[in-house]
Nucleic acid binder design. Structure first.
Lengths: 94, 94
DNA sequence: GAATTAGGTTTATAATGTAAACTACTTTAC
DNA sequence: GTAAAGTAGTTTACATTATAAACCTAATTC
């Protein structure tokens, strides 16, 4: 009856991250932090989980001398998001 | 940017329960158990949380000699569900 | 050169979800 | 009639998850 919801995406912050990345295709850590309102610590952890799952790619470089973390969604991430939304529809359509 | 998602509804099982109750208006414990595939213990706990929040009303009676638990969604529950869905749209629209 | 800010990561704790174990009663089998 | 199995749940203990506080490294400001 109810399809399982990918637990990795069924989390407010991780869903917001993916939702952002779907539209922009590339985003800096601080940009995501501002948009989501998350604390840096929490964001760091959640980005790591999405990365470990292969849903996003994380690139660490330097902007001048400051560290710069950039995130890009992967095909796997896009697919997972689409599946998640599809499953979710079952729950929220009246 | 991203509205908060009611944590009480942002849970697969509780969302499934509310989703069911939205359409049927009254459902027995065992019916919900079958439809959601949840274990009785888990279902009992989650129904309790929804009830404590005032999202559903729980009625305990007897069918013949067996205990019978029936759930009905409240106006508050309907409102919460609608708000949740509305907030969620922000996350899942591309 | 001390304090503040930037850009994060690590870790400790709180909150949550879930299944296993249990209660209470009923029905069926012997 | 009583032992075994089934029904309808609840309680409790454990595992997972989420989150913020504390920390780190380096740069900037005063």
């Amino acid at each position: 009856m109810f399809k399982d919801l990918d637990p990795l995406l069924h989390s407010q912050l991780r869903l917001a991250i993916i939702s952002l990345l779907i539209s922009v295709e590339s985003a800096e850590f601080t940009f995501i932090k501002e948009k989501t309102g998350a604390t840096a610590g929490n964001l760091s952890v959640q980005i790591d989980k999405l990365s470990t799952a292969g849903y996003i790619n994380v690139n660490k470089s330097f902007k001048g001398k400051m560290p710069l973390t950039t995130c890009i969604i992967t095909k796997k991430g896009i697919k997972a998001f689409e599946d998640y939304v599809k499953s979710l529809q079952q729950y929220i359509k009246k």
